[in-house]
Every structure is written in structure tokens, then in C-alpha cells.
Simulated scan of single mutants.
Amino acid sequence: MISGLIHVARSSDAVAIESLADTLSALVAGVAAGLVGDAVIVTGAPSKALDTVAEGSGATLVVYPPKGDPWSAGARAARRDWLLCLEPGDIPAEGWIRTLDRFVGTARPDVGLGRMRRAHAGLPARIAARSERVIGAAGPRPGDVVRRERLLAGLPFSPRLAVRMLAARLDRI
């Protein structure tokens, strides 16, 4: 099973809160299939709206310290061995459950991380993600599936983790 980590950069933005709700509702299919065990909402600033969304969805809300790493803070609160890193508005496309289940079920202990395609990401982010397939990833990006223990060890990943592209993609609403 996996935990969904959703990093909310702008906790006071009403559109981000709405997008967060959409992302959480998309994870419900993974819960029903037995793949997603819990969700963690990670933010840099507390917000009443985020408290409400977290309470209503059963997710854990984590506020990380200034200059802290949101993914590592979320990993400390997650309850599963694998983490799916997301942003508000990320909606996994059809077939994601089967793809992620196969990945986490067959990954060897030395496997770095799995990466879902994000066609909606900007050109600089896509170029950086593509270069990480060659040189390895120093840290997770939204759409990555990574072992919890890797994030608990701290960032940047040492040594850089090999990136395995997954046959699943994230859409943006």
C-alpha cells in the first residue's frame, strides 16, 4: 500500500483548496482498490480551510517549518512504505492503480523511484525531469513514487536515485 502526499504551496489560495479536494477525491479509487492507505496534506502555513479539508477527508495535515522540506515532513506522518507525491490539481489518469500496484509490488530494494508522466508541467520542469533519468534524482517531484525510508533519510538523495518511468500519467484539472 502507499500513502498519498499532497504538497499545498499556497494554503490561502481558494483555487488550490478546490484543486486539493479534487486530488483527494481522485485517490478514493485507489483506496477502494486497496492501494492507497492514507493521505497526508503538507503545507508551509496553517490554514482553516486546509484543516477543514483534512478533517473532512480523513487526511493528516502537516505544517512543515520554514526552509524545511515538505516531502520529508510528510513522510514522517505517512503510515505506508511507499509515497505518491502530488500537488493540488493532480489527477491520476486511467490505469494508474494497476501501474502503481505493479511497481510497488515488484520493485527491488535498490530501486530508486518511479515517475509518472506530467505532460502539463512546464518546459523547464520537463527538461529537468528528463535529465534526472540519466543523472539520477536528488529529490522527489510531484508524480513520483518513492520509498518512505528514502525521504526519512533526508534530501538530497545520496547517492542520486535512478528514475524508472511508469506507464501512468497525471493530468491537471
Rank of each mutant, 00 (worst) to 15 (best):
A153I: 02
A9G: 05
Y64P: 10
T52L: 14
G122W: 03
R160E: 13
G30N: 01
D171A: 05
W96Q: 00
P159V: 04
G68W: 10
G114F: 12
A26R: 09
L61N: 13
I173M: 12
T43F: 15
D90H: 02
R133T: 15
A39R: 13
G30K: 02
E55T: 07
A39K: 08
L50A: 07
L35C: 09
L20S: 05
R141E: 13
E18V: 03
L50M: 07
E149S: 13
W71T: 03
S158H: 08
A167D: 15
A21M: 08
G95K: 03
A45I: 15
G68K: 09
V40S: 04
A45T: 15
A33S: 14
W82P: 14
I173V: 12
S57D: 10
S131V: 10
P159L: 11
R172L: 10
G143L: 03
W82V: 11
F157T: 02
G139W: 15
L100V: 12
R79W: 09
R118D: 00
L24I: 04
P156Y: 06
P88F: 01
P156G: 04
S19M: 11
A29P: 12
S158I: 11
D101L: 05
G112T: 08
G105Y: 02
G74A: 14
G122S: 15
M1F: 04
S72V: 15
R80W: 06
T23H: 00
T106A: 08
G58L: 01
A121D: 15
A121E: 13
R169N: 03
L161K: 09
S3G: 03
D171W: 01
V36G: 05
R164A: 08
T52K: 09
V53S: 05
I6Y: 06
L155G: 01
A39S: 13
D13E: 07
I17M: 09
A39P: 07
S25G: 06
R115I: 07
I6D: 00
S3I: 04
H120R: 10
S131G: 03
S11N: 09
A77K: 12
I173R: 13
E18I: 01
V36M: 09
W71S: 00
E149F: 14
V53F: 11
H7V: 15
G139F: 12
C85I: 10
A128W: 11
W96P: 02
I2V: 08
A49E: 13
P66I: 09
L5W: 01
A121N: 09
P124N: 04
A49L: 02
S3T: 02
H7Y: 11
P109I: 00
T43W: 11
R160F: 14
P65Y: 11
V15R: 07
G122H: 10
A16Q: 12
R169F: 00
D144W: 01
K67M: 03
S19Q: 14
A121R: 11
A73L: 04
S131W: 14
R115L: 05
G56L: 00
I17N: 08
G95H: 05
G68C: 12
A16M: 09
D90W: 00
P140S: 05
R147E: 05
D171S: 07
L35K: 03
